[in-house]
Amino acid sequence: MQVEVRVKLKEQVLDPQGEAIRRVLAGLGYAEIGGVRVGKLMLLEVDGEAPEAVRSRVEAACREVLANPVIEEFEVRLP
């Protein structure tokens, strides 16, 4: 199954890239876009039937390498 992993910077971590994009958007007239945060989207092809077992394995992979828990948080989405 295809599993979606979203990794983003934690709320309390400043995201200079998102802030730069917000400023560009404001310059283009998108004044209503008050905040931008940039993250990563990873699509994993995983062998497995039992959703909870798949989720548990993917979460382990997130903790081990896909996300850095000091600055990032992750979300695992199954189909």
Binding site: L9, L14, P16, Q17, A20, N68, V70, I71
Partner: peptide, 16 residues
């Protein structure tokens, strides 16, 4: 930092 021998993490430079 990534293997935890030292604390913290690196973010992109303030100037990008």
């Amino acid at each position: 930092l990534e293997i935890g021998l030292l604390p913290g993490a690196m973010l992109m430079n303030r100037t990008l």
